[in-house]
Design a protein around this nucleic acid. Sequence first.
DNA 1: ACGCAATTTGCAAACGATTGCAAGATTCCT
DNA 2: AGGAATCTTGCAATCGTTTGCAAATTGCGT
Lengths: 341, 341
Amino acid sequence: MDEDKTTRVMVRNITDLARLAGVSPGTVSRALAGKSLVNTKTREKIEALAREHGFRPNQMASGLRRQKTGVIGVVIPLGHDSRQQISDSFFMTLLGHLADELTREGYDLMLRRVVPEDDADWLDRFIGSGMIDGVIVIGQSDQFDRIEDVADGYGPMVVWGNHTEGQRHCVVGTDNRLGGRLAAERLIAAGATRLAFLGDTTAMEFAARFAGAQDIAARMGLPPIITLPTHLSPDRASEEIAQHLAARASQIDGIFAATDTLAALCLTELRACGIAVPGDMKLAGFDDLPIARQTVPPLTTVRQDIAAGARGLVDLLLRRLAGEKTESLVLPPQLVVRATA
Amino acid sequence: MDEDKTTRVMVRNITDLARLAGVSPGTVSRALAGKSLVNTKTREKIEALAREHGFRPNQMASGLRRQKTGVIGVVIPLGHDSRQQISDSFFMTLLGHLADELTREGYDLMLRRVVPEDDADWLDRFIGSGMIDGVIVIGQSDQFDRIEDVADGYGPMVVWGNHTEGQRHCVVGTDNRLGGRLAAERLIAAGATRLAFLGDTTAMEFAARFAGAQDIAARMGLPPIITLPTHLSPDRASEEIAQHLAARASQIDGIFAATDTLAALCLTELRACGIAVPGDMKLAGFDDLPIARQTVPPLTTVRQDIAAGARGLVDLLLRRLAGEKTESLVLPPQLVVRATA
DNA sequence: ACGCAATTTGCAAACGATTGCAAGATTCCT
DNA sequence: AGGAATCTTGCAATCGTTTGCAAATTGCGT
């Protein structure tokens, strides 16, 4: 009955709880925040009451007063190639790791997908919303310039993407160019001499991978690598790959795919065309997603360390939140030789 | 110069802007909110100033005052099998679609992964934070009871998962039991008579799929389906599958995998054992993820309509936010016959 | 020119938590 | 016991926006 009476009272805010505990709101606030200024006994009493009534301080109010929200924004700009990009395995895995890392550091994660062409100031909007303490941008897409602009006036931002000499925003990413070199070297070592790059080279990361491969082709005195542009969504890509193969398969004996996902699709199409891998055609991918182990034959690829990437992003962001000025972080790719090259 | 002078002023809040515009904060608020109560000319002037200074009202403050945040929480409870579940293709694809749908409805998405066993009141914490207007729970994991408890006192919650007769929380999900029936029927039609279920049946969805398959086996007078429990993370699963096959392969001629991901791994292991699919062993998966088309041979599976699921989740949640009491939504699965059964 | 209705605006009190400052209560030392 | 030093607490302002109410302005008809 006594419990009944107390439980019946609705505790909506710190003031209600203060009344119950017979103290002032300020004391409750301090107690719940675990500050040392409050007497152990009162603190315990307050904590007990809070638990009993399932009360938790309102984060919005707290955020407003403290001018920090405990939330990090994660934004994925979708290029022209909007669709599917977010369900792309790579980004999703990265997102998963980010969620882990941020949680571990006590932050929440607010996810936003944006289509920059429909919404020019997507980045300022997010930052200016007052809802987030900092922002992680996943993928530069074709928004390099806008990101640069914002970086000048806003500190707590870190971007996953490609590092370009002299850029002003803090970026974390794999050394794509080096990765491209590794892939090309492997294809050539496996016997290929006429290479093609499968993927859309207008995306910065992909362009760098292509450039790396081209470095090697040139150094080896091989003919320039031809490009076979595709979209990223599986349905369109399959079709486009089939067309590319129909038109070009006879002119090449090695394919460097921008992504494992593309490589896997390509493998399927090659099989459909009756082209043997690695016999008639060498193939290399990029990312080392789980699927790379499961294709038949398993895929030779270039690994990106996604977990390290996520850790880097969060670590740099926290340092920037603390006011530090941080350099970009470029991670080394690693060649993983399996059976396709 | 005149522009210089104005641009130099930092506009941090609605009051600053009001001063610039020569009106009161209230008017600025109304103007920016697009209310009809404010004169068209003043509104335009205010909007112009806001644009010029890149000012946006603080969402925290607005949320506090209006008692709604415009944010929907999406929480993924990770079972004992913590790892990897979030990068599971299925959940990630669902998450992508959710992000789309919520954005379209003008909501932001706050993502939280939780490990219920480390943190008993994960759900109340999220709800009580004051940061979200409603919550979508992705997967019941082993938290059915806790979710039921919460559902009694909190309206705006919708859960992705399995529907159980008489449950009190609003759920959206595929009819797993029916899906299980479809898969078993197909395996049997393809010639299998001694079936196994690959996956952890303590997860509710999986248990229902298993039960469905068992329905059919019983009806057909076949021996009971044996279960081959596994974890979900690819590394552990591979190993476990290999062990299962070593021990049991000779006793069975058909496998119903709880997930396409597991089916694909299983296919790889079968190949390693030299067991022909579908010759010596029929195989069916569940989900119809992109990978199902890319395995060799391509996978027979049961499709879940993920996009429809996401739409359902958001639609029901919005209705509940509006105060409606909604029923659960059970989506029909669809058999997709490819080459493994 | 006057009165009444319809528009626009301003005022000030919320929303719920935090925190500098000062007052009140304890402790401790002599 | 007296007084200084240390702990605890309460007070009240503050974060930035929204909104009910009332005041001020405008428009309109006569």
